[in-house]
Write a protein that binds this DNA or RNA. Sequence first.
DNA 1: GTATTGACATCAG
DNA 2: TCTGATGCCAATA
Length: 100
Amino acid sequence: MTPQEYVEEVLSLVERIPEGKVMSYGAIADALAEISGRNSARQVGSIMARHGGGVPWHRVVNSSGRTPPGHEQEARQRLLSEGVPLKGDHVDMTRAAWTP
DNA sequence: GTATTGACATCAG
DNA sequence: TCTGATGCCAATA
């Protein structure tokens, strides 16, 4: 599987995250490990940083439920409006976690 | 071919 | 909350 295809897989998976749910970078890496043979949360993060535009990136958080840097306030607002359970400034992963 | 880097994960101070 | 240390792995330089 080429890097471009891996990028496509990551993006399409992020697009499939339903409203009110989120996935961690590690969860995405795990979910795609099956078909990609790769398993690196860092790679997922890098991909989001480069090609994150066009997908609901705010539904992708780190394992603590923290929103990504740079657009924290916007992410928080979108998550809130989608009904994602928030605990202060971070997502309640125990209820918001989603897997395909 | 080697080194550096990074929107990560976890644990310990 | 925030560093630092460790482990991890592919992209970049």
